[in-house]
Design a binder for these strands. Structure first.
Lengths: 194, 194
DNA sequence: CCATCTGCTTGACACTGTGTCAATTGACAC
DNA sequence: GTGTCAATTGACACAGTGTCAAGCAGATGG
């Protein structure tokens, strides 16, 4: 839990990520994680006080591993609002499949566990800020479609790009990732661009 | 569980619906339901073999109470595809808040329980058929926007109108029901109508 | 060489919620 | 009375999280 991770902590977090990514929605228990990390179940609690704390630490670990910040660079660098929107949709839509295992575990836990819910909401708030920036850039260019306020447009974009929607389209409706991405680009444009 | 309900079964189902509707997302245990129905927890199992079976029975009970079929009449009666789409969005968007408690319980359960997941998927399949009919009516009129196939348009509309999206906008982002409804009407039009 | 600290182990246990089982009761019917 | 039906009480199994105590192996240091 310290900001600098011990070797064992790294092993635990790596094991967690591997299990969440491969399990494809399967429940991952503390004992599964312990076994995968090669230690006893109780030893996990010596490093992370609860399942929720472990999941939160794992998201940070995931960000570190995936370089989540760097992904947003193209979006920030975009000149026009339209470009910024497209770059943001692309960045986020491409990130979702990589974090899906994690997200799924969080969303399941958040159903009962307020701490998990808060941690997830916080991350989604960050994501919303990206949406907001894209919408603002559109508005600045005078390219934001009429009918929705900036706040409403932000919320709509944020909802459109939700993990649940990705899950519905790619998992339940078997869309390919490419199709999903293209549809999100097109949808965002139709909803928000004048 | 028989097609005709005993008095106790009716009391159990009514209690279930009341708890799910008022609890606003709170976990509803078998013991809560039993207490609300004025019987012992074990007695509930004399009528419904499992929590999942009880939830499924409760959805049918809810349909009966809310007259879910009648709601779709305006959509079916619509002359143009545009009207049909608007009527369908209105009917479904208005239904969601009434079934939300139920839906939430199902979705939470579906995370672990395949039977619950299947029951929910089945109901969402019905909902998708409504979307499909609206899209087909649009296409028939030549009013379906280019860029998406009928199947894709159906999936997009279905996703747009998902319970999770309603939850995100009205619960997390505090949109009023009216605002939600208006935004869905407008969004469906922008996404699908030429 | 012994003491102690650290990181881990094993094993037991509490708690929650679902689902099962057995023995019992009270009422109503024939 | 006897049978039967709905419900009761109480106990228990099971899974998964989280806690606690006792012990052990290896490194550090006097």
């Amino acid at each position: 839990m310290s900001s600098t991770l011990s070797e064992t902590e790294t092993r635990i977090l790596d094991a967690t990520l591997v299990l969440l990514e491969n399990g494809d929605g399967e429940a991952v228990r503390m004992s599964d994680i312990a076994k995968a990390a090669g230690i006893s179940r109780q030893a996990v609690y010596l490093h992370f006080p609860s399942r929720t704390a472990l999941l939160i630490a794992a998201t940070h670990h995931l960000d570190r591993r995936k370089g989540s910040e760097a992904r947003l660079a193209p979006s920030r660098a975009a000149k026009s609002g339209r470009e910024r929107l497209a770059a943001y949709v692309e960045a986020w839509a491409t990130y979702i499949p990589e974090i899906y295992g994690m997200a799924k575990a969080f969303l399941a836990r958040a159903e009962k566990d307020t701490a998990a819910a808060e941690a997830w909401d916080e991350r989604m708030e960050d994501m919303r800020e990206g949406c907001e920036a894209a919408v603002r850039a559109l508005a600045r260019d005078g390219d934001l479609a009429d009918g929705f306020s900036e706040a409403e447009a932000t919320d709509l974009l944020w909802t459109l790009l939700s993990v649940r929607n990705w899950e519905l389209l790619t998992k339940t409706r078997s869309w390919s990732q490419e199709r999903y991405l293209a549809a999100m680009q097109e949808s965002a444009r139709r909803l928000l661009v004048r």
